[in-house]
């Protein structure tokens, strides 16, 4: 079988398109490259979905943590403690066990023009259940980062905002938030990289693979178990993830430049390649 044929059959295998049966014998390098790459679609989806939603919840959590109201502050603190204090691995297991206990019903959500019917059973599928866990997890970590940045917003900028007569939402939207983002961005980039790494855990915990559709590590592990040779699939997996990490650094670096463009060159915080590595 030519490599082009393999690509045609398996490039979208992880999302259920193409050949139904996985290769069983005579694994070529091409098979492994194509299928593991196909699995990366899941990693991309998990990471992007969780980051996109988590960003907003993280902002809310950061504001909640610095809120004057005791219950709001405590709720935010506990949320952060719960998700930062326990392993993601356990969170996945626990979430899956809890989701399968939910009664299986369809809920209709009217959206004005159309109605979507939502099945609670979707929660036990990786595409929704795992994204929810990752979303809450990244919201807690980024919330802590944003909270730190929020406390570091220079007082002078806030006083200037007051002097211009800005208040409430306007002051937050125009002054506090952009500065908060600018300060938090290097650490947030780091969080994004770690979140993408965390997506590799999904199919190794509670969430089962449907129709042998899994992420990159699922296929890498499949090949390693079938060929008994770890020296090919895992390096391929590593190669894809290094590409992904470099992409994240590039994209976030661009955004960082945009966030800093109003500053004098000497004051710009460059997104250092040596970011603080730890989460």
């Amino acid at each position: 079988m030519s490599c082009a044929q393999t690509f045609h059959d398996y490039a979208l295998r992880s999302i259920g398109l193409g050949e139904r049966l996985l290769p069983r014998t005579d694994f070529t390098l091409c098979d492994q490259f194509v299928l593991i790459g196909s699995g990366m679609l899941w990693n991309l989806y998990f990471g992007i979905a969780a980051l996109a939603m988590g960003f907003f919840l993280a902002t809310a959590v950061a504001l909640g943590r610095s809120s004057q109201s005791w219950p709001v502050r405590k709720a935010s603190e506990w949320f952060i403690f719960l998700f930062r204090g326990s392993p993601l691995f356990i969170q996945f297991f626990l979430a899956y066990q809890a989701f399968v206990l939910l009664p299986r019903v369809g809920v209709d959500i009217p959206l004005g023009v159309a109605t979507i019917s939502v099945q609670t059973s979707w929660l036990t599928k990786a595409w929704l259940g795992a994204v929810i866990v990752l979303f809450l997890n990244t919201a807690a970590y980024s919330g802590e980062i944003f909270y730190g940045a929020l406390r570091a917003v220079p007082r002078g900028e806030l006083e200037a905002a007051d002097a211009y007569g800005l208040a409430g939402w306007q002051k937050f939207r125009r002054i506090t938030w952009p500065t908060l983002l600018r300060l938090a961005w290097p650490a947030y980039t780091n969080e994004a990289i770690f979140l993408f790494h965390a997506t590799a855990l999904v199919f190794f915990t509670g969430f089962p693979a449907w129709r042998q559709e899994g992420d990159a590590l699922y296929y890498a592990n499949y090949f390693a178990d079938k060929t008994f040779n770890p020296f090919i699939p895992y390096p391929i997996f590593a190669f894809y993830f290094i590409l992904l990490t470099l992409t994240v650094i590039t994209v976030f670096g661009r955004i960082n430049r945009r966030l800093n463009r109003h500053l004098a060159p000497s004051e710009r915080s460059r997104l250092k390649i040596r970011l603080p590595l730890v989460r």
Partner: peptide, 25 residues
């Protein structure tokens, strides 16, 4: 199952396969 045309859901342990039927998965 994979060859029979049905949709296969895989679990790591036998007990989980039975649990999946019990909870409707």
């Amino acid at each position: 199952v994979q060859e029979s045309g049905a949709t296969l859901v895989e679990f790591a342990t036998p007990e989980e396969t039975v649990a999946a039927v019990r909870n409707g998965e």
